[in-house]
Design a protein around this nucleic acid. Structure first.
Length: 516
RNA sequence: GUCCCGAUCGUCCAGUGGCCUAGGACAUCGCCCUUUCAAGGCGGUAACGCGGGUUCGAAUCCCGUUCGGGAUACCA
């Protein structure tokens, strides 16, 4: 590890690749984990990590664990924890063990594991790897400011308390009654480590990091190491932002005499301006947003995968999770932080929508419409109409949320249909005459056998040919009269669903309105 | 400021020294299909940040530089 020179990512990957080929040995069952904090709406990054965590666990026949990291008591948001369970399940990226599911290493929530940290702190203290620090937060803040103003390269704690007793320290300024515990970083701390994705990595030199806060809670650094070890986690998948803390974690493993896990530092998802993705700049950073918008979870999962990983073949962007699990390799993950741009997801969502048969799509649309409030307590007739209309909109959907609005003309009463003003204004030719001809033609058709093909033929001859006008001119007023808008699902199929009586009623009303 | 990570079309990926006058997908533009809008088909525009090396040969390896990002908390 010490002799890590700048071999370059390419070289590192090549080595890893050849090792994979040569050993050809199946990896032993892995234990991976995702460890979100319940500090607000679940973040898209959580799902992003979970995707790779779960794929690796599945590929190796291992287990995927969800642990809730709630050591920061000040930032807890009620309900957030439940949303984490919910959204991961929705994405079919649910864990095998969790606070909800339980498991052999319960409890799976850090706030319920508090007793497990203190003994290790005491051990580190006794071994001289950690020390008490009574410096007040004010002193620390002043120190930081002073160095920032001086553009000093110095960083971290100045070790004022190192080697002092409480009595000795209390005589100096900036003293606080309740101490924290800090790691004593040795001069020869190992800074390099092997990363599953990046190969050999070098991290910044750590400071004397606080591992136990004044309130008795462990910081992330201590808790994550202790928990991961106690829970048997052997593969840690986390964001790139943690590379700089890895030497601290490795030190803790070493001091405690534990086998360190393997690390995979995923690239950071970015806002359009390339900064680390944030809810502030990108609404899609909220996992719930996708469900609210009407995205399909399978499409989102597929999209997330595309964000760091090559397609299975050129031109084949769609891939099942099962297929991905089979071919997944850490070394194939891209290291550059991808911009999180949902444009391609929109397309993918349309593809997934079209891959559903109309019945299944109708189920999804209905489920969405009720959950989102588009439909409140829909009648049987309304449900039937939406199902009937599904073949007409399937090719026209990007999001589930678009279906009901596109079919709303099937759900209103004839007398309640509004004729879009702009659509009416843009009508060409002589709408009144066209409507008269259409009315006469349709009145001549029988009640039964009022199907799209029949309607089309009748209208073609009864309106377009009879008046000598083009279909686009002749059918436009009929479309507005029947659907209320110049843009609509296919006209004749729509009329078939509506039925003869309803079509006649609507067209008469429209004709009257134009005349009046 | 310091340390670390990264860099190919607008965006996401391919590229592991010659197969690259750089490939695919989305987006965009044009054409076809067409009763609207879509979907679909066909085609076009569009990128190796810069400078030095190494080499017969570099998008690929090395160095520097620039730019972007992250870390630098008693947050995670």
């Amino acid at each position: 590890m010490t002799g890590v020179h700048s071999a370059g990512p390419g070289a590192a990957r090549r080595i890893q690749y050849s090792v994979l080929i040569m050993t050809d040995a199946p990896h032993s069952p892995a234990r991976t984990r995702v460890a979100p904090s319940p500090t607000g709406d679940p973040h898209v990054g959580t799902a992003y990590m979970a995707l790779f965590d779960k794929a690796w666990a599945r590929q190796t026949g291992g287990r995927f664990v969800l642990r809730i990291e709630d050591t920061d008591r000040n930032r807890l948001v009620p309900g957030s924890e439940e949303q984490i369970y919910e959204t991961l399940d929705w994405l079919a990226l649910g864990p095998d063990e969790s606070p909800l599911l339980g498991g052999p290493y319960a409890p799976y929530k850090q706030s319920e594991r508090l007793d497990s940290y203190r003994p290790y702190v005491d051990q580190l203290l006794a071994d001289g790897h950690a020390y008490y620090c009574w410096c007040s937060q004010e002193r620390l803040a002043a120190l930081r400011k002073e160095r920032a103003d001086a553009h000093s390269p110095e960083t971290g704690y100045d070790r004022l308390c190192l080697g002092m007793t409480k009595e000795e320290r209390s005589k100096l300024p900036g003293f606080s009654e309740t101490p924290v515990v800090r790691m004593r970083i040795p001069d020869d701390v190992e800074l390099g480590f092997h990363d599953l994705i990046r190969g050999d990595v070098r991290a910044p030199r750590p400071d004397d990091q606080v591992i136990l806060k004044a309130d008795g809670f462990p910081t992330y650094h201590l808790a994550v190491v202790v928990d991961d070890h106690l829970m048997g986690i052997d593969t840690v998948v986390r964001g790139e932002e943690w590379i700089s803390s890895t030497p601290k974690h490795l030190l803790l493993y070493k001091w405690l005499g534990w086998q360190a896990p393997q690390f995979a530092h995923m690239p950071l998802l970015r806002n359009t301006d390339k900064s680390k993705i944030s809810k502030r700049k990108n609404p899609a950073a909220r996992l719930m947003w996708f469900r609210e918008q009407g995205y399909l979870p399978e499409a989102l999962r597929n999209f997330l995968q595309l964000l760091a990983y090559p397609t299975i073949a050129e031109g084949e962007e769609m891939e099942s999770f099962e297929s991905f699990i089979q071919r997944f390799r850490w070394s194939d993950i891209s290291t550059g932080g991808p911009v999180f741009d949902v444009t391609k997801l929109d397309w993918l969502n349309g593809q997934y929508i079209r891959s559903l048969d109309v019945g299944a799509l109708a189920d999804r649309v209905l489920e969405y419409a009720v959950a989102s409030g588009q439909l409140t307590d829909p009648s049987e007739a309304a449900v039937a109409r939406i199902r009937a209309g599904m073949p007409l909109v399937r090719e026209r959907l990007t999001l589930l949320s678009e279906a009901v609005p596109k079919l709303s003309f099937l759900l209103v009463e004839d007398a309640g249909l509004a004729f879009d003003e702009d659509s009416v204004a843009k009508l060409k030719g002589d709408p009144a005459a066209i409507l008269d001809a259409a009315l006469a033609t349709l009145e001549g058709l029988p009640e039964d056998g009022f199907d799209a093909e029949t309607i089309q033929q009748a209208l073609k001859s009864g309106v377009c040919e009879a008046l000598g006008i083009k279909p686009r001119v002749g059918f436009a007023p009929i479309r507005v009269g029947v659907t209320g808008n110049r843009v609509s699902p296919p006209l004749f199929e729509s009329m078939e669903i509506l039925g003869r009586a309803s079509c006649l009623a609507r067209l008469r009303r429209f004709a009257d309105q134009l005349a009046g």
